[in-house]
């Protein structure tokens, strides 16, 4: 599974994003993910990928988050 696919699964479990199609360009605003959903999502990604994300660098798009995860896991984005 790619990072994006795993991220989609994490988001589905968290019950955020609704029916909006998720691509690398999708913004969290489009997904109606507010700052606390994002904190939650960050924690869920930390568990799923075994990484620690910088609390001060709030990503704006799915792509930014995927790239951050790729950088920390060494996997391909």
């Amino acid at each position: 599974m790619t990072i994006l696919e795993r991220l989609k699964k994490v988001m589905e479990e968290q019950n955020v994003g609704g029916d909006v199609e998720i691509t690398m360009d999708t913004t969290f605003e489009e997904l109606e993910i507010d700052s606390l959903d994002l904190v939650d999502l960050t924690m869920n990604c930390e568990d799923e990928f075994g990484i620690e994300l910088d609390p001060d660098s709030a990503p704006k798009t799915i792509g930014e988050l995927v790239e951050k995860i790729a950088e920390l896991t060494g996997e391909e984005a």
Binding site: L36, V39, T42, M43, P55
Partner: peptide, 9 residues
């Protein structure tokens, strides 16, 4: 936000 994270975990 750091309190939020601390609280949940």
């Amino acid at each position: 936000q750091s309190v939020f994270k601390f609280a949940v975990s």
